[in-house]
């Protein structure tokens, strides 16, 4: 092991250089630039000077941090709903159906992801809008007198976010549940367990690494999602990514936008860290 590590050979260098270059040029360099940018403002004379104002604005202006809190709360809610929907799905695929069929079902889960998120969101809009498919059928069936607007509210938005994130929760759950010995579930059942105690005492503790890694991915993706909240979310409340977009594009204040971007990164990392601490999981175990 040590001998291998100390031998940096030519093939190794050839292999590793493009990777390092890619990491450095496309990820590290722009971020350094953005980081520097976030600490600069234009003074009265129009010159750029160093300042923390961009960051302080976030805390001084209630609309910013309220938007962030709202975004974070909805992201947590979405993560929890995604988990409660995905666990039965993953359990069904791994433990209930025959192995031949479970591969097919996993493929079925993947299918919606063959089209881009934009197309999927427009699909939802076609179904749900006032003149959409669902309203049309409900009117025909006489269940509604007048069409209802089902888009542009928070419930629909959360549904859309759950749908978009489900795959990222189901896949890690399938992989942890596959390693769960069926006889543990049977033993718990034999010892008097019911569905609730088997899920809470056996399945969830066993699946914890998968739950946490799926949870982190879903939480981060939801927090950073732009399309779904923007297109089907409520008009009167904002998603934090829209604030960043507004700063960059609408106000053309790149320095403020960069500061918000870094705040999003730092705050979401902090929340993930707290989540890991609360569930007593180690990042290295979760990621493997």
């Amino acid at each position: 092991m040590n001998a291998a590590r100390s031998r940096i050979t030519l093939p190794f260098l050839i292999f590793v250089t493009p990777v390092l270059m890619w990491l450095f040029l496309l990820i590290v360099l722009p971020h350094i630039d953005l980081l520097l940018m976030s600490f600069r403002i234009e003074d009265d004379a129009g010159a750029m000077v160093w300042s923390l104002v961009n960051y302080l604005n976030f805390f001084d202006e209630p609309v910013y941090w309220r938007t962030f809190t709202r975004t974070a709360v909805y992201a947590i809610l979405t993560t929890m709903i995604t988990f409660s929907v995905s666990l039965p799905v993953a359990f069904y695929i791994t433990k209930v159906v025959s192995p031949r069929f479970s591969g097919f079902l996993s493929l079925l889960l993947l299918m919606p992801f063959w089209v881009s998120e934009l197309v999927r969101v427009y699909g939802w809009m076609i179904l749900l809008r006032e003149s959409g498919v669902i309203n049309h059928f409900l009117l025909r069936a006489g269940l509604l007198q007048r069409p209802v607007e089902m888009l542009y509210n928070d419930i629909t938005m959360v549904m859309g976010l759950v749908y978009t994130s489900m795959l990222f929760m189901v896949v890690p759950l399938i992989s942890v549940l596959e390693s769960l010995d069926d006889s543990l579930i049977e033993a718990a059942y034999d010892l008097g367990g019911n569905v609730f105690s088997i899920v809470t005492r056996i399945i969830i503790p066993h699946a914890m690494p998968g739950i946490v890694s799926g949870g982190i991915v879903v939480f981060m993706l939801t927090l950073g999602n732009y399309l779904t909240p923007n297109l089907i979310g409520g008009k009167n409340s904002l998603w934090f990514t829209e604030q960043i977009y507004n700063q960059f594009i609408a106000s053309f204040n790149w320095n403020q936008g960069a500061a918000f971007g870094f705040l999003l990164l730092i705050l979401s990392s902090a929340m993930v860290w707290i989540g890991l601490k609360l569930t007593r999981q180690k990042l290295s175990q979760v990621v493997q």
């Binding site: 543990l184 049977e186 033993a187 059942y189 034999d190 010892l191 008097g192």
Partner: peptide
């Protein structure tokens, strides 16, 4: 879970 019998599994199935 409602039968007054318990089973010891071939591979024990301890939690």
């Amino acid at each position: 879970n409602r039968r007054p019998v318990n089973l010891i599994f071939q591979h024990l199935a301890l939690f």
